[in-house]
Design a protein around this nucleic acid. Structure first.
Lengths: 275, 275
DNA sequence: CAAATAGTGTCTGTTAGACACTATGGC
DNA sequence: GCCATAGTGTCTAACAGACACTATTTG
């Protein structure tokens, strides 16, 4: 009697929790959803890229003007669907990076930002988009694009101000990417990815200033940045086209995290309340 | 057992081969993919959950014993496929959280960790998995599981030591989740999610000690934690079952980021050198 | 009272930030 | 020489970490 009631209880609970197949599943007492003889939906998968860079010491993101519906006329992140069912998502991101921005992803910082999959985010149907964050050193041309591209660098501040019409949920994605970059600047050497292979400390500081949107004291930055083990290392000698005294040149060191971190000034995050 | 290990090895090898085959692709389209008259592949989408908690002041993760192939006998993260093409991925994560751990996601911290989509990560076919990180306060029972569940809390240190056989790429996912949690402890109030609604400062410190795997000085922790604006706020009065002097009770404050951050001691992150 | 946990005070060495000052280039 | 940028020295207030000491409970 007791056992009967128990079993009944289990079934009822299971049904309530959508384990409809539980009763049929006699194979084992171990249940997980993968085992159910029910066929899950197949969904379109895309990748989107948030490519960040510094141009003239200002923080920019690459956007593309859409020519067709949906969101024709809006700007959007570069991206596209997976090529085939066997293509790795990172590989797809690297492919798009080359196709739409003519950038070589193997020489860039690129990391996954996250998956955006709200139903209805794409009016054409269910599309799950994996967003990637790429950081490129400042480049001379607008975009050495492959196509007669409508790709353009846009100031991040302007894009986030809401004055730019972004397609899909791309504004949210850009926001998340910028916040990720701002945070990673604090305790990873991500800032070096905005510079070329070699850079001066002043250039590095301009990255922090642009991304965090703050002003820093170069003289204190000097010591701070050089006191973090393996953050940057001096590379040979000076010699730089400059107007003043030539600066020492550095390259990224071996550190993957910064100890101690470079903490960004309070103003930037804007979280705290009273004080 | 031997057979199991062999099969696993084959799968892993196959995974690598598959990956390399698809890294270099030959498509070189000019226009954005959305505009092409070509039909992108549809892919299975799953969610996986890394549920972290403290049990007896030790850091634990919830794992499930798999009863069937692939990876029968291995432990795995709770998770499952999307229910239908219209289900939001976060909703699916919350549903799995309830189904497999009987936890109410609306009262928990839950955030997306990322997408895991290497071709071959699931031997049954192409499956893209969106991993979520959930943090639960310590719970009395092993798991108030819904089914006659094989879900069990495992010490994180033991799981990451490599002695536990995890299915698919779940070991990587757990590693990423733990690193995410460790980092977020530094500059978000995530630690409070490991505690109940109300907690003492000593309890909060035990979260930091367990997750970071360090020892802290409670007396210094006191001042440190109370000096961060809006991190925690005193809630009414004392009264706690205790052996010594009753502690003051706090709850999470309004801060979403900690200024200044609680920087974890160097030892925890590793050397700071590249691997 | 002792044991146990909670919480404060205080000292010391290090650090962040401000900024005076020196260095090295082009003109 | 002047201007511009690079880089160092130094002072001060704040802070982290160590730890002696006080406080409040139970038994």
């Amino acid at each position: 009697m007791f056992i009967l009631f128990s079993a009944l209880g289990v079934v009822l609970v299971a049904q309530h929790l959508y384990f409809y197949c539980h009763v049929d599943n006699k194979r084992s007492s171990v249940v997980s959803v993968d085992e159910e003889p029910w066929s899950p939906p197949e969904i379109l998968v895309a990748v989107d890229l948030v490519i960040l860079t510094l141009r003239a010491s200002a923080f920019h993101v690459l956007l593309i003007k859409r020519g067709i519906e949906p969101f024709a006329g809006c700007e959007a992140l570069p991206g596209g669907f997976l090529n085939n069912a066997g293509e790795d998502i990172l590989a797809a991101a690297l492919r798009e990076l080359r196709e739409e921005a003519d950038l070589d992803g193997t020489r860039l910082h690129i990391e996954q930002l996250g998956a955006y999959g709200a139903p209805g985010r794409d009016p054409r149907g269910r599309v799950l988009s994996i967003a990637y964050l790429a950081v490129a050193p400042g480049l001379p041309q607008p975009v050495a694009g492959t196509d007669a591209s409508s790709a353009e660098w846009r100031p991040v501040g302007h894009v986030l101000s809401g004055k730019v019409n972004l397609a899909f949920d791309h504004r949210q994605i850009v926001e998340d990417a910028v916040e990720r970059a701002r945070t990673k600047l604090e305790h990873t050497p991500l800032a070096t990815a905005f510079c070329g292979e070699k850079f001066t400390i002043a250039e590095l500081m301009r990255v922090y200033e642009a991304v965090w949107d703050v002003e820093l004291d170069l003289r204190n930055f000097y010591r701070k940045v050089q006191s973090v083990p393996n953050f940057i290392e001096p590379v040979g000698t000076d010699r730089r086209p400059a107007k003043g005294r030539p600066a020492r040149v550095f390259r990224a060191g071996s550190a993957v995290t910064l100890h101690p971190p470079l903490v960004r000034p309070e103003s930037s995050t804007g979280t705290g309340e009273k004080r």
